[in-house]
Amino acid sequence: MSPVVSATAAENREVAITAATSAVQSGQLVVIPTDTVYGIGCDAFDADAVHRLLAAKGRGRDVPPPVLIGEMRTLDGIATDIEPYVRDLVERFWPGALTVVVRAQPSLAWDLGETQGTVAVRMPDDEIALAVLKETGPMAVTSANLHGSPAATSVLDAATQLGSAVEVYVDGGPRTSQAPSTILDCTGPAPIVLRHGAISEDDLAALVPMAGEDEDASGPHTPQ
């Protein structure tokens, strides 16, 4: 059984963060809490680790994992041709449950799957996740459950489904909401909702004009 490191008490938090960081930097998979559900993640620039992440989840390359970042400025390092309205969205909703699909920097040496030149990016509103991300840099992170199964709202849920595929499980306590992040396609002149989630379309529309919703809207970053 892979180790479970508790981060629920303040005095244990640094130990948990160090364990997760070391595992990621060694090319391993980890499970960490986020502000929505538990996530399974790895170094976004380690193609072998990303492959094992998708295999552990039972998901194909046609649904590439999002990338979580620990600092706002990292967005400019991994994305290009960012539409001006994206700045307004992330300044308002990050850290938080908003994922933006933007054009990826073509020079980046990574392989997240069949991304069609884009990357889904989010900055989670969770102290533990942000602490790990600030040490590791961008991580490929997707919900810590088998493809098609309910999202993990506790570390036990995640461990039951993913088992020894994960090197370190960080226990941050139960997640109280199963609402996923809202995913927006931000590659065009106005954002398009790819997945409804924790941030409502009304809240988004109050900030930036939204494109007309396409009921069949989908893309490589839309979980199936």
Rank of each mutant, 00 (worst) to 15 (best):
G137Q: 10
I69D: 11
P106A: 03
H147G: 00
L207T: 09
G77P: 07
V208T: 12
P64V: 00
L68I: 08
A159G: 01
R13M: 07
G58N: 01
I69R: 13
Y169W: 10
G41L: 05
S164D: 13
L156G: 07
S177R: 15
G77E: 09
S200D: 10
L130N: 08
G27R: 09
P95D: 15
V67I: 02
W110Q: 02
I69Q: 09
A140H: 06
H147N: 01
V119G: 05
G113S: 07
T74I: 14
T74F: 05
E215F: 04
A144N: 06
H221F: 15
D62H: 01
V63N: 02
T153S: 02
T176C: 15
P65S: 13
V141G: 07
I17H: 02
S22G: 15
L194A: 08
A55L: 01
G148T: 01
H196C: 04
S200R: 11
C186S: 09
G70N: 14
V119M: 02
V24I: 15
T182L: 10
T187Q: 11
A44M: 12
M210V: 14
I199W: 13
S200C: 09
D202E: 14
P150H: 01
V37A: 07
L29G: 15
H221L: 13
G77L: 07
G197V: 14
L75K: 00
C42V: 10
D171S: 06
